[in-house]
Design a protein around this nucleic acid. Structure first.
Lengths: 205, 205, 205, 205
DNA sequence: AATGAATGAGAATTCATTCAT
DNA sequence: AATGAATGAATTCTCATTCAT
């Protein structure tokens, strides 16, 4: 019991990394489908094609896996989403198109892991570590989103860009989310139209 | 197995109704504090000052209790919230004030059971019954909110009132929620200002 | 707490006796259908149309009810069965008819409480009181059955009447029982014929 | 809920098979001593020297264990009993000896698990799966017993061999059973003599 | 590295019985 | 006498985690 014994394996070799990723991929599917509490280690291991023993060799516990999943994968998605949002806007394209593009990119990203995202929302209330992780990702997202908005410079009518960024991001997220999860009596097109109209009116002179 | 014996007790006497309510009250506190998954029947019973046996006499399981709690109490709150939203608007008060009033009422309501509300959000993904309950409440809320918006008649610039109602409700809910739960670097005032500005520009001519 | 307080009510009045009987009647049905362990006090009370409180006013516990049921009712049936067996045999009717009559009477009796009878069989292994009751009834039955056999006097080929009585009673009971409970590929008639033939050959010269 | 994970363990390794067998062995002892309803999972696990977790890893519940026990072990015993019954009869040994031998073999078998056998009898009334298992075993036994009787060919006086087989099997079973379980005032010898006499007279010319 | 058997604390649930009204 | 609400010990069962091989 000499101090430096690492509990979880840090895979140095290709095979180890592959295994780790397979576990994460399996967890993503199961957490999304059955929720964090509705999924157990045995199932994840089985789906990943490894033994429970291996599961615990790679992850201290279920929570650590969840956090690795969130951090490692969702962060990637958020970053690539921001890159794609920033691709478009220029003085050549209209402001309306830009807003729609932004919404579309967020929606696309959301589709990659809809329930999972909400699972984070739920877990952060009861777990400080997950809350910290959530905040970290959010903070990063906000900064990037603000810098995106600032690209429009003097075409903006808003003055408090930081506040606007959060209000807009929240509105888009919520709208997309409810669209994805429930059969709305209102078509997706109508909802996106309304949302784009709102944001456009708000942002631009 | 056998026949006609009811599983859960329908209280006939004052005492029974009192007990049932005490269990619901205890559950509300614990679900809010520790989350649905972080609370168990024994704890709820203890907090309510009753035995586990009583718990199961009144509720088939934790889920049924959760649904009774949601249905019985949250619905009340949403309804009274809507009443209060409708109180204000008239031709005498400005449109800006009305929007702020609306936001305020939703915020106040949210403050009554913030975590609990999100707990429903989380649970609905993994449970069909809770989803149905959520949808029922939401549908009611939407109808009322639409009729609220329609009170402004020809002062509105929007044409698709139903879509607008949902987009606005979602935006307010999300903004309020993130304000309540996290220490934002942005003050509440700034956020509410931004939100009110957005909705106002969107709604009115 | 002064010594002589009787725990269970001994009904002096017509109404009380009626209630007691209704509980026993309900128990008989439920014990037969779902078994002793598959039936609970609440169900019995509900079926009898009384409260659980009343149930425990009349019976110390479930076991006492079971024993009252067995003793009070089954004993009656066994006695009347014996009376009926003894009715027939005389020098006028043939021995074959007598054997068939005997089987028929046992079969008829069995039909009144088939599963219940076996429930006693099962319970007696784990409960000394029920075993004692069972033995008491059995002993009584045996004595009567022996005296029945002795009516045939010198027409009998058997010498050990007591042993014969038990072997025959067991054979009839078992055969009837399996006939009543399971869809036999062999018709009832064939089985009864075989049984009657066996007993007849065995008993008589 | 989730997918492809097997519920009960199918032991791949020697250790697992050993554990499973230890649980079955413990259950056999406890079911015999205290009855099915008088035994619980914790006790069985303790007696087997394993954890409750292991119990439930190998058996869905108590019933499944009971059925495994019945199927796996009793069936073996019944089959070996039939083999032994068939060993003897030939034209060299007398018919009386053969009948006694048959009784003796059934008695010996019964002695291996007397209460357990009756426990099946009791449980089959309230459980369809156990009834099916019982019927399966019984059907097999009957077929074998019939083929045993047919070995005597033209020495038999009975014509309906199938019916006779069941009547005889039932009589032997019942007699042996009551002998084993209760202190009879009649000695075992007298009972077996009576039984053998009855069967012999019935079967043979 | 990997496997999957084993663990046991703890959660869910039942029900015989008592007690307040 | 009667009611049905309340009790809580006992039981079933799950699952995150550890350990022997």
């Amino acid at each position: 019991m000499g101090g430096t014994v690492l509990k979880t394996r840090i895979p140095q070799q290709k095979r180890g990394i592959k295994t780790r990723n397979r576990i994460i991929a399996a967890a993503r599917i199961l957490f999304s489908r059955d929720g964090y509490h509705g999924t157990n280690a045995k199932e994840i291991a089985a789906k990943a094609g490894v033994s429970v023993g291996s599961f615990y060799a790679y992850f201290k516990d279920k929570k650590e896996l969840f956090m690795a999943l969130t951090h490692g994968h969702m962060k990637q998605e958020i970053l690539s989403m921001l890159d794609r949002i920033k691709e478009l806007p220029s003085e050549k394209v209209g402001k309306k198109e830009t807003v729609r593009h932004m919404i579309q990119v967020i929606a696309d990203t959301h589709d990659q892991s809809p329930e999972l995202y909400r699972e984070i929302e739920a877990l952060k209330y009861s777990d400080a570590d997950i809350l910290a992780l959530h905040d970290e990702i959010n903070a990063y997202f906000n900064e990037q989103f603000i810098s995106f908005l600032e690209m429009f410079e003097d075409r903006l009518r808003i003055t408090d860009v930081r506040a606007a960024a959060r209000v807009i991001a929240g509105s888009v997220e919520e709208t997309i989310h409810s669209l994805r999860l429930f059969d709305s009596p209102i078509s997706e097109k109508r909802m996106i139209d309304a949302l784009a109209d709102m944001i456009h009116r708000y942002l631009f002179k």
